[in-house]
Amino acid sequence: MSTNVATQNKSNTAGMSKVRFITQVGMLGAIAVILMAFEIPLPFAPAFYKIDFSEVPALIGCFAMGPAAGAMIELIKIVLHLLISGTSTAGVGDIANFAIGCAFILPAAWIYKAKHSRKSAMIGMAAGTVFMAFIGCFLNAYVLLPAYAKAFSMPIDALVGMGTAVNGHITNLLTFVVFAVAPFNLLKGAMVSAVVLLIYKKISPILKMR
């Protein structure tokens, strides 16, 4: 009898933990979509490149509950954003946001998971920022900008021209990536990392409660 009770208690605990996990992921995803609405334009990049802090909840979720939680938060954020606001980029910007966001948070989470310390978190976020910048440059040059141009029936040169209008160093696709995309992602990674470092220690005990 005692064995059955112990098994039942273990099953109930696991069930409650699963519900708590789903609830926390959903909550952080909802916070992320709210933060996504507050965008900061940048003087060195075209108007469609704006920084937001929606990766903050995703990165906190990664650190507290693991990489899978962070990816789910990113996905929930994008789905909610599409349902609430629709898309002004034919879905290209939304796919980019998800892919590049994951490129940032997942390396950070994997490094932090290996050793839970402030130093490890900082190394993880630095690595994630660099990886995000690299992936962002690659995807923008070879996938996202061409897809965006095709979706709106405009030449790549027109997008480059939008960059040239705000940044004289941008003269072609390569310089667009180097002087707009890379700085954008590096700055975003640094800003999100700084916020997470400031608030994670205060929030994490709540998320880790069982």
Score class of each variant (00 low, 15 high):
I40M: 07
I203A: 01
A71W: 11
R210V: 08
A165P: 09
S85F: 10
P183L: 02
A180I: 01
S120Q: 10
I170V: 15
A147Y: 09
M65C: 03
G66L: 05
A141K: 12
M191F: 11
V19L: 13
L106F: 05
A114E: 09
S85T: 09
A109L: 01
W110T: 09
A14V: 04
V192S: 10
F176D: 05
P146T: 00
T164E: 13
Y49M: 13
I203T: 03
R118A: 15
A149I: 05
G15C: 13
K150Q: 14
M27S: 06
A147T: 05
K188Y: 11
I76H: 00
N172V: 10
A121K: 12
A180W: 04
C62M: 05
I123G: 06
P205I: 07
D94A: 14
I156S: 01
F38V: 12
A99N: 07
A180Q: 02
V92S: 09
G61I: 03
P46H: 07
K188V: 07
L159A: 08
L106H: 00
V192A: 10
S11Y: 14
A103T: 05
P155E: 04
F152N: 01
Q8L: 11
A180R: 09
P107H: 06
N172P: 12
G70Y: 01
M125I: 03
